Amino acid sequence: MISVIGMGPGDERLISVAAQQLIESADILVGWRRLLSQFEHHPAQKYQMGVDIDATLQWLREQNQSLDKHTPNIVVLASGDPMLFGIGKRIAEAFAPEERQIVPGISSVQTLFSAVGIDMNDVYITSSHGKQPNFDFIFLHDKVALVTDKKIGPYQIAQQLIQRGLHRTLIIGENLGYPQQQISVLAPEQVQAEYEMNVVVILNERQ
């Protein structure tokens, strides 16, 4: 069985009890280096994911089809929530329901909305990871959460707003759930060039 578990934001206290129990019983832990580093003393075998997700899926398939009497308990550690721009989607597509289970976690988007006390009703959630966002479509929405990457982040979003002459409020959440968490509420003209790992909320407060 492959269990994909949401590790939530950086605060370990926000990992669900179900996820903690699966980690404790894991024979193999799979994840990015940052997540695996939390379990250096766990007796499970460790498999570090790389940029080639297909290679990881093939390795998981080989482990899950073991001919041994004991099929290992494989736990895939996912940042935030596995099904919100995470590894959960790929594993759900690659394995049958009886071969895998997905345990949700608290996403960085949820963390930011809760921190600033704004509801998530009617929010449009998207991502700039590995793609060029359709900003004209995004800016049609009054409440947007955008999971960013290093190429398209707060500054690039702000510049797109300025070019269109649009008035919006940007809420930038950096390192959400970690001790160095920082939240900034800015007009597009105030957005700086560089921010650490972040999520951006775009609000149209003049609707």
Rank of each mutant, 00 (worst) to 15 (best):
M1S: 07
M1F: 08
S3K: 06
S3M: 03
M7N: 02
G10P: 06
D11C: 10
R13A: 15
L14Y: 03
S16Y: 02
V17I: 10
V17G: 09
A18N: 14
A18I: 13
Q21I: 12
Q21L: 11
Q21S: 15
S25R: 14
D27H: 10
G31W: 01
W32K: 14
W32V: 14
R34L: 09
R34W: 08
L35Y: 06
L35T: 05
L36D: 06
S37E: 12
S37I: 07
Q38C: 14
Q38V: 09
F39Y: 05
H41R: 14
K46F: 11
Q48C: 14
M49R: 11
M49Q: 12
G50H: 11
V51Y: 09
D52G: 08
D52N: 15
D54K: 09
T56L: 03
L57R: 04
L60W: 01
Q63F: 02
S66R: 10
L67I: 13
K69G: 15
H70F: 05
H70A: 15
T71C: 13
I74W: 03
I74D: 04
I74Y: 02
A78V: 00
S79R: 02
G80I: 04
M83D: 13
L84F: 07
F85M: 06
G88Q: 04
R90G: 13
I91Y: 06
F95C: 02
F95M: 01
F95L: 04
P97F: 12
P97Q: 11
E99F: 00
R100N: 05
Q101D: 08
Q101N: 14
I102W: 02
V103P: 00
P104W: 00
I106P: 07
S108C: 15
V109E: 07
L112E: 01
S114D: 13
A115K: 15
V116Y: 02
G117F: 07
D119C: 10
D122C: 14
D122N: 15
D122V: 07
V123P: 09
V123R: 04
I125K: 08
S128Q: 06
G130L: 03
G130E: 05
K131H: 08
K131P: 06
F135H: 07
F137P: 04
I138E: 09
F139H: 11
L140K: 15
A145N: 05
L146C: 14
K150R: 09
I152Q: 01
G153N: 11
P154L: 09
Y155M: 10
Q156G: 08
I157H: 02
I157R: 04
I157Q: 03
A158H: 00
Q160M: 09
L161N: 01
Q163Y: 03
Q163H: 05
R164T: 08
T169R: 14
L170T: 00
L170F: 04
I171A: 00
G173K: 04
N175P: 10
L176M: 12
G177R: 03
P179V: 12
Q181P: 12
Q181V: 03
Q182E: 15
Q182L: 12
I183C: 07
S184L: 15
V185K: 13
V185L: 10
L186G: 01
L186H: 00
L186A: 04
A187Y: 05
P188M: 06
V191F: 01
V191D: 01
A193Q: 12
E194S: 15
E196A: 15
I202V: 14
L203T: 14
